[in-house]
Design a binder for these strands. Sequence first.
DNA 1: CTTCTTTTGAGAATTATTATCGCTATTATA
DNA 2: TATAATAGCGATAATAATTCTCAAAAGAAG
Lengths: 157, 157
Amino acid sequence: MSNTVTNFTQRTINYEKLLGDFKVLLKKNNLKFTIQREVILETLYNSDEHLTPELLHHLLQDKFPELKIGIATVYRTLSLLEDSAMVTSLSFGAQGKKYELGAKDHHDHLICTICGNITEFVDEEIEERQHKIADELGFTMQDHSMQIYGICKNCKQ
Amino acid sequence: MSNTVTNFTQRTINYEKLLGDFKVLLKKNNLKFTIQREVILETLYNSDEHLTPELLHHLLQDKFPELKIGIATVYRTLSLLEDSAMVTSLSFGAQGKKYELGAKDHHDHLICTICGNITEFVDEEIEERQHKIADELGFTMQDHSMQIYGICKNCKQ
DNA sequence: CTTCTTTTGAGAATTATTATCGCTATTATA
DNA sequence: TATAATAGCGATAATAATTCTCAAAAGAAG
């Protein structure tokens, strides 16, 4: 494959950095740094899946049973993180909203309409183009999300 | 503006064609062509907004009060249309899922995170690139959606 | 027109999300 | 490190969104 358009990148932000950013964000807004908020961030960081609030809640109950984290706290924290653009959500088809950490690294999604599997990719050309378009329309770009829907290799058989 | 990246296009499929496609789709799946399904398609076609199920339901009640279309029928029909890729949905931030007719014309979205306004655009370079990426990953592309989030001109003040 | 099957609307049921509230944890300050 | 002030927590109630159920109505095919 000589002319690769895709560029699978690794997580570029380490957890310490991320946590630091989170703390700064909280302080700036007079919000408190709590153990619940920390483990939610950590769990999102360590998950490679796109998580629904319920799924995340289950994960948290498994990993930190002693904290008895409530579903309301999960929703509250996800909203907080989304408002601050630290996580982004995507929704498609019948399935509900799914969240992922935005800071891990920019990537877009290839979604199989049969098996629901998600492949992530990054394409610099598209990234650049998006910035140009936003600029031209007098828009200050904060984030983006892109999904390509289709049938994956496996499901074609 | 000499080097326009965006290209605002008009609706390219007329309603008769769309309705014909819908009828074929229904027949193929042993589904019946009902007046409810027709007016939902028509209302989506005639709307330039991105509609939530509730909003669409209100529109239908206003325009076709004699049909007393139920909210369940709206949901059922939207799912049907989405499964058949005739409409696509998008969701962002706190606001719920919104639906639009996919066949009107391909376009992507610029979404203002403050006022929620949506600007549509088309960029050929991105479209091409998407196809290339899908091909390269052994994926048969069916559709795509792209959103750029940011702050619009008006909200910057 | 008749028969067969699917769809519909109404509303019940379920699921998802948000709000409330008394208690606890965190932070800033002394 | 003790204290006071305040924000966040979990539990659960309330609300909103979506899906299900079912009897009646409507479409398709002959």
